Amino acid sequence: MIRFLKGLILLPIAIVVVLLAVANRQPVMLSFDPFSDGAPAFSLQMPLYALIFAAVALGIVVGGVGSWLGQGDTRRDRRAKGRELARLRGEAERLRQTSSATIPGTRTALPAPISRA
């Protein structure tokens, strides 16, 4: 069902992208020299659709990097909690072994830990 909905959404987007590329094949000059109007020192001739696609791709990359950097605190907190969880599980296991070794003849065991991984 999810695959069908993805196709239903992505197919019209793909059609629009192809139509955009076909309709905007004419070359445009991308100038990196803001001070020269006539003959810019740093310029590039490219199709308009390539310029648009490059701008969208750059926006996706910059947005992804910004999102990744913004979630640094969450990742750090998750790592710290994972270390604490491993330490507490080790301590619980040590206490289980200690309690069964201290009281000989008893089979009292702590319940097994709940695995959430």
Rank of each mutant, 00 (worst) to 15 (best):
residue 45 Q to D: 11
residue 60 I to D: 04
residue 84 E to T: 06
residue 41 A to G: 14
residue 16 V to D: 02
residue 79 R to K: 14
residue 77 D to Y: 07
residue 74 T to H: 13
residue 62 V to W: 10
residue 35 F to Y: 12
residue 46 M to R: 06
residue 48 L to I: 05
residue 116 R to T: 09
residue 99 S to E: 04
residue 42 F to V: 10
residue 32 F to N: 10
residue 103 I to R: 03
residue 39 A to W: 12
residue 7 G to L: 08
residue 103 I to L: 13
residue 49 Y to D: 04
residue 110 L to S: 07
residue 80 A to V: 02
residue 5 L to I: 11
residue 21 A to I: 00
residue 60 I to F: 09
residue 26 Q to P: 00
residue 31 S to G: 04
residue 114 I to Y: 11
residue 3 R to N: 11
residue 116 R to Y: 08
residue 86 A to L: 11
residue 67 S to R: 13
residue 107 R to A: 13
residue 115 S to N: 15
residue 66 G to S: 09
residue 12 P to N: 02
residue 74 T to C: 10
residue 43 S to A: 15
residue 13 I to S: 02
residue 24 N to E: 09
residue 101 A to V: 01
residue 98 T to W: 12
residue 20 L to S: 07
residue 60 I to V: 14
residue 4 F to P: 00
residue 85 L to K: 09
residue 98 T to N: 08
residue 113 P to T: 02
residue 41 A to F: 14
residue 6 K to D: 04
residue 114 I to P: 04
residue 57 A to P: 07
residue 54 A to T: 15
residue 90 G to P: 01
residue 110 L to C: 01
residue 9 I to C: 10
residue 106 T to M: 14
residue 20 L to F: 01
residue 44 L to W: 08
residue 111 P to R: 09
residue 96 R to H: 11
residue 99 S to P: 00
residue 56 V to A: 15
residue 75 R to W: 06
residue 47 P to C: 05
residue 28 V to N: 05
residue 90 G to W: 00
residue 25 R to V: 07
residue 24 N to P: 02
residue 77 D to S: 12
residue 95 L to S: 05
residue 29 M to W: 09
residue 3 R to S: 12
residue 75 R to C: 01
residue 104 P to W: 02
residue 10 L to Y: 10
residue 19 L to G: 09
residue 78 R to G: 00
residue 68 W to S: 02
residue 112 A to V: 04
residue 6 K to I: 12
residue 35 F to V: 10
residue 49 Y to G: 02
